[in-house]
């Protein structure tokens, strides 16, 4: 009640002044970026890198707040319902688009309740197997999968994780249901893959590159349109006959819907500066991630990506019949 009253008083006071004046001064206090995952994960790392760079550009502290839980939907819900003043932002990955289908009882609309600011980065994925898995290359893997079917086990890091999404896409492309083994996170799944307890996995280069280089796991393909500079000998899924298996864990920055356009523009400016900041690009490259470009770190590009990804994943998830609630 009191909140409403105070808001009304402030709104009346500001009515004459107009919002353009406040937008020009933005930001006058610290900005918070909500990461909807626990601290230390790849998304958290990306956010902290970007936040540090944006602090410099905006001249105000950009604080990272981890609101983990429920596949990123708790943190996203908090930002969706926050005041649209540009001081509470969300940095979310591909889950922002897939949660629209994975969660049937979402308290917000991932497409409509946010004002996109821009794409931040993209992390490619790799199709990998245990070291002693018989198939020598992707073609042999396809043949083996068609012959053996669910004898082959596929590890994922839990419903809605990048490895889960990639697995659904892979099984759909192969038209073979493999036996899915779910884990709580990438680390235990990778542990079982190293130990030879499961056969296949598809995961972000962040997690797989060093194992591939160390020869502890086998790699079949990268899920990008072109080969990766960090893994030049690994063919793409398209080269190996599975052109539909293309996944990247893209990250986007959002404000709540209704945020003043001038404020969004100021934030976009800071994001644009961050994605060309050598401190950020260099670290992102080390993580195996590709930073966004001047064209993609824009509201229009992110909006288009969210819309197209929601449309793309909806039939895949519905066909698999796997929901997170």
């Amino acid at each position: 009640m009191r909140h409403g009253l105070v808001a009304a008083v402030i709104a009346t006071a500001l009515l004459g002044a107009g919002s353009a004046a406040t937008a020009q001064e933005f930001p006058t206090k610290p900005v918070t970026i909500v990461v909807p995952f626990a601290a230390g994960g790849p998304t958290d790392t990306v956010t902290r890198l970007v936040a540090q760079s944006m602090t410099g550009t905006l001249g105000q502290q950009v604080i990272v707040e981890n609101v983990g839980g429920a596949g990123g939907t708790l943190g996203a819900a908090r930002v969706a319902k926050a005041d649209p003043d540009g001081y509470t932002l969300l940095l979310h990955h591909i889950g922002q688009a897939t949660s629209a289908t994975l969660y049937r009882k979402l308290s917000y609309d991932p497409a409509k309740d946010f004002a996109p600011i821009g794409i931040v980065a993209d992390v490619p994925m790799t199709v990998v197997a245990r070291k002693d898995f018989p198939a020598a290359d992707m073609k042999a893997l396809i043949e083996q999968a068609k012959a053996e079917g669910d004898v082959i086990t596929y590890a994922n890091a839990g419903i809605g994780s990048a490895s889960h999404l990639c697995g659904m896409l892979l099984m759909q492309a192969l038209d073979v249901p493999l036996t899915t083994v779910a884990y709580k996170g990438t680390a235990p799944a990778m542990n079982d893959l190293l130990g030879g307890q499961v056969d296949l996995m598809c995961d972000q280069t962040t997690n797989t590159t060093s194992q591939i280089k160390g020869g502890t796991i086998k790699v079949y393909a990268v899920t990008t349109p072109e080969r990766l500079p960090s893994l030049p000998d690994v063919p793409t899924t398209a080269e190996s006959g599975l052109p539909d298996v293309q996944v990247g864990v893209w990250h986007g920055l959002y404000a709540p819907a209704g945020t003043d356009a001038a404020v969004v523009a100021r934030l976009e400016e800071a994001l644009q500066a961050a994605v060309i900041d050598p401190n950020v690009t260099q670290r992102l490259a080390e993580l195996g991630a590709t930073p966004a470009t001047a064209e993609t770190a824009t509201p229009a590009a992110l909006e288009q990506l969210v819309t197209s990804e929601i449309a793309r994943w909806r039939p895949v998830i519905e066909a698999a019949g796997q929901y997170a609630d």
Binding site: T45, L49, T206, S210, Q211, K213, G214, E286, L287
Partner: peptide, 9 residues
């Protein structure tokens, strides 16, 4: 990883 070292074998 941020330091450019991939933890692994």
């Amino acid at each position: 990883t941020i330091q450019g070292i991939q933890p692994g074998p």
